[in-house]
Write a protein that binds this DNA or RNA. Sequence first.
RNA 1: GGCGGCGUACCCAAGUGGCAAGGGAGAGGUCUGCAAAACCUUUAUCCAGCGGUUCGAAUCCGCUCGCCGCCUCCA
Length: 494
Amino acid sequence: MRIYNTMTGTKETFVPINRDSIGIYACGVTVYDYCHIGHARSAVVFDVIIRYLRYKGYKVKYVRNFTDIDDKIIRKANEEGIPWNEVSEKYIKEFYADMDSLGIARADVEPKATDHIQEMIHIVQTLIDNGYAYTVVEGDSKSVYFEVAKFKDYGKLSKKSLDDLLAGARIDINESKRSPADFALWKASKAGEPWWESPWGKGRPGWHIECTAMSMKHIGETLDIHGGGADLVFPHHENEIAQSEAYSGKDFARYWVHNGFITIDKEKMSKSLGNFFTIREILRKYDPEVVRCFLLSSHYRSPLEFSQEQLKESEASLDRFYTTYERIEDYLRYGARQKKKGDISAFEIDKAIERFSKSFEDAMDDDFNTALAIGSIFEFLRILNRYIDASPPISEATAVLEKGKQCLKKYTSTLNIFNRTPYQWQLAMLKSKDIPITETQIQEKIAERHNARESKNYLLADNIRNELEQLGILLEDKKDGTLWKVKRDAPEAN
RNA sequence: GGCGGCGUACCCAAGUGGCAAGGGAGAGGUCUGCAAAACCUUUAUCCAGCGGUUCGAAUCCGCUCGCCGCCUCCA
């Protein structure tokens, strides 16, 4: 299995330190507002990575933190006139609400920065003792800075040289720092800010130190995988490496995994540009599974352009999957309902199952290529359809199709999409498209139309069908009854 | 300015040396009381442009054009 490592810029064979206890740390969010779809991408990407590694038999300990103290949280608290921890607690709750709905499993440990103040103080003190950090008096207490020039590998992740960084004039000139590139490990608190007692007086932790403290406490000094959004490469992860390796003398992480951005009109979606959509906004119009499918429809490192069209395409993909799935179920229940078309043997399906398993795993083994893996699902689906078209004897079909279904299930559960029943999918569509009719009412209409058709009153039958179509419900006449489904391009509610 | 990435059919998208996955849209067909849906088939002599390496390149190298990211908080 190969993973792209930002550190080396190449795909490398994944060799964990110990396959029975893989440690993965992903940077979570700063909880000061609702999450947008970009946060969702990162969360979904690592959710799939974890699921797939577990499927492969690795024992994974997954740690994802909350940054629950920082400038933005303090500012928000001041704006709203509430304590800072009320802000962070509120948005942690909202984070869970959003991520749960997207089918993202909880991490094994979800530490908060403010629960690790003592660990951070210990690391900072060690860095001072080792000569990597220095204190500066600021107000009534002291701040602590990491002296970047002392760490000779600085820039190895982001491929930046210290000289280039210093030449780029955009770094703040802070008189008290020895170099503009030095970063805060511990910040002296200003009036009115939250603070913790420390050897340097009242203060609060810098951003980068929290991840070092939490990952080392919950995993150890060397992580198998460290992940996050591509915008964290510099300075966040670069600084984490500097302080962690200066502290422990060991490599901080073996594989660095970074996901690409969501873009809008080709530009990065971000809070500061204001071109973002929150997860909950999108979920008002689209089913969570649609959003998740959209997020997995291209490779995790590529930029992913957000648009209604893209979401509709993902919806269409899911609809196609569940329609075929329903067709399989239908065949297993009732057998052939149409003329035999083509010829394909159970043996060939067996081979197709093997081929599908291999192509799915090959895709995922190659740096978690979910786009390719989804492609292999559709390829497999087409073969199953062809098999049903060939109207195989039910006894033979049962064995083969059940096997195919189980194989699908095994893999779709690693993506956590294509994972419901066709019926659940249709109910979800009914809900997300705000169709103004209940399932019970639809069934009544179907029964009414059934009677009309029995008595050959096709005019009435057609009227009922048209009436439902107006509402966004399509009827499919089958041998043993009529199936309803939500019209894909049904008008959205105004 | 420094560093990095991207440019594949009408749209999205995989593919990083050996006949160009998959999805959406379009076209033709099958099924059907009629429909619709579904299913099947089909849709890039070619991968931004130019040049080079090679028996062979979308894939490697060089240049050009266009787009984007990081260098400041950011998933």
